[in-house]
Design a protein around this nucleic acid. Structure first.
Lengths: 203, 203
DNA sequence: CCTACCGATCGGTAGG
DNA sequence: CCTACCGATCGGTAGG
């Protein structure tokens, strides 16, 4: 009946797949999406290489699955938590505060997966690069929408340049990730929150 | 006489070493310092792997030489160009403008080497990570000195938090690199200059 | 600086 | 899901 996994049900196979992807996000946040290797993954999970690869076909498909999983985790821990705040400035503030909290405590061990992946793949081409760039664009689009709405609702000054403000907000988060991961400076979240207050007011 | 290179003078050997390092910086800015391999390097330079490795001993020593070379290039294209500006606010502005110009046109094909290396190695340990983090610290220290001096000279407001301002300046540069390399958005330098004007006044 | 080579590991496949 | 295997490439060494 079950050609690919004679002793495992479909549900079990799905769980195994999830285990692989979860561990992959952690490894990739520390060593990069290229540093993630099938052999290492198999060793850490007590599986054979073929067993790992069987769920994805190729390494590139595994990488794409990892990007998807990281996006899902990000949506859960950032976007979802800000969901109850009303659209506009309040939602924008909630999103940014959730973002800071995520980088501070909720992100994988090597820091924000997307920050790392963006830097790793920005000089390449192909589906993985496109997926990473697409996620970044979606996220910035979300921010921009709430900036524009905040302006329309009179919560931000009339002349506010939405692209400019999103650029500044992204800079705060990149600097925060940099401060935490490379410099290991615990003051970084404080600076980030201060910058956010200056840009969009109190959280 | 010359055990290591029977047909090359010391000067020629040094030139070969420089060729290797220069090409390595380009490759590393695109593919990362781990993606840089001895075999590929040898192929592109028309040398044998042993010929390449002979100049450095190990890959890690090659990576450290690449970090040094990138720091030198950065010093030439950013720090050196701002040298004539008087210490304090004017020097700070000159440094930041040179930095933007460097990211815009002078950086290696894959963007700022240090931004990429910082992200690649922030989750690891060892001499390469330490070298990268050390360079970032030196550079931020340089910025901080001129911020403090600007405050002392009355060019920046008295209550200015130097660490906070340096954090914001770093954020602008990270966002600029991100905008240029991942999003390939040519408006990024404009946004960066606008942010700088808000932080430290006209360049 | 080269050739020739080492063991280890890479991504991936065949076959069950 | 496994074992067994493929060719290619990895960093590095011996010897000249």
């Amino acid at each position: 009946m079950d050609v690919m996994s004679p002793r495992k049900s479909v549900a079990e196979a799905r769980l195994t797949r999830q285990r692989i992807v979860d561990r992959s996000v952690e490894i990739a946040s520390l060593e990069g999406l290229e540093g993630l290797t099938i052999g290492r993954l198999a060793g850490e999970l007590g599986m054979s290489k073929a067993g790992v690869l069987g769920h994805f076909g190729t390494k590139e498909h595994l990488q794409l699955a990892v990007v998807d999983a990281a996006a899902e985790a990000f949506a859960e821990q950032v976007v979802e938590r800000a969901r109850t705040a009303p659209p506009g400035l309040l939602r924008l503030r909630a999103l940014c505060e959730a973002w800071v909290a995520y980088l501070e405590t909720g992100a994988p061990p090597g820091g924000c997966f997307f920050t790392a992946a963006a830097s790793e793949f920005d000089g390449r081409s192909g589906p993985v690069r496109d997926a990473v760039a697409g996620m970044a664009s979606l996220w910035q689009r979300d921010l921009r929408i709430h900036v524009r709405r905040a302006v329309a609702q009179g919560e931000l000054a009339d002349g506010t340049d939405a692209d400019q403000l999103v650029f500044d907000l992204v800079g705060v988060m990149l600097a925060l990730n940099h401060g935490l991961q490379l410099q290991r400076d615990r003051r970084a979240p404080m600076w980030a929150r201060h910058s956010l207050r200056r840009l969009i007011g109190p959280a």
